[in-house]
Design a protein around this nucleic acid. Structure first.
Lengths: 152, 152
DNA sequence: CGATATAGTGGGGATAAATCAACCATCCTC
DNA sequence: GAGGATGGTTGATTTATCCCCACTATATCG
């Protein structure tokens, strides 16, 4: 009787993926508050949304404005406006794309990178406290799996 | 010259935590776009930020409005307004807190839960595609570590 | 019982952000 | 090289969000 069900989920595969999705959702839900607070700490006189761009640039390196807009879910107009702001503050640098003269490549300036790191507070107490009790092996495993998921 | 660095980081522990932080940051950066799109799909005539509340309620269950506001990084005023909106749409229900008669306990209605699931699209193609090639063991390990991190 | 603190709700004004549209420079195709 | 498409910037308009304040009801403390 269990031979031809349309959606019986006989494989535990779907259940595993669903469970992972639930955990990811929990992480993303909870991290919103932290993200907003980090954005406030990023630069006093800067729009909160700019931090999303800076953080993405920190994570994924130089890219064209259109790629940034697509990646962080903003339209090009907003992205361009925020980028201009950060360039004026010396947090972001742009150089012409050697392969396409109408495009530019954006990257964080050393100052910008330092600001992102400070805002993220990756060595901060709140972050480390979560990892108390973790073995170094678990840390490595978690990081590796996360990296693989991000690359996916 | 390298004898007295202020941040020599001799233990690999800090390096491991830092690396994990980088990966987490990459995940959060990239997920913003998906979140914004999900928010748009959540309910046509609802403010985007309402989805953050609904998603948090889905992940962490019934809670008081103040706890929700704290958790998602909004002030109580915005939270109350958005909650009221969702209650009017039948997505969120509230019942009096038995232990404190001035407080209320918020929870997603069945409709609301279904909407969150649909918006998250946890079984969606984009999500499953990322997990292609993962063994079931890796899925389990990743989920377990994520759960542990979230609980931390 | 009185005074103060806390949970929740709501209004009004300031600000940030998304949207829409126009615009220029460069690329690509025919 | 002409025409259309693409990358990027900018300005105007609309919308959403934040922040401060007031108000009610309940709880807690003295």
């Amino acid at each position: 009787m269990s031979t031809k069900l349309p959606d019986p989920d006989p494989s535990p595969r779907s259940a595993l993926e669903l469970e992972l999705g639930v955990e990811l959702n929990a992480l993303l839900s909870a991290s919103r508050a932290l993200t907003e607070r980090s954005a406030a700490a990023f630069h006093p006189e800067l729009q909160p949304a700019a931090f999303h761009i800076a953080r993405w640039l920190y994570a994924y390196g130089p890219a064209k404005p259109s790629a940034v807009a697509e990646a962080v879910g903003m339209d090009r107009s907003s992205t361009s406006h925020l980028i201009g702001w950060m360039k004026r503050l010396g947090l972001v640098e742009s150089r012409p794309d050697p392969s396409d003269r109408r495009a530019v490549l954006l990257s964080l300036s050393p100052t910008g990178e330092a600001q992102v790191l400070a805002a993220l507070d990756l060595r901060g107490a709140a972050f480390s406290a979560r990892l108390r009790g973790w073995s170094e092996e678990d840390l490595q495993t978690f990081t590796a799996l996360l990296h693989r998921f991000n690359a996916g």
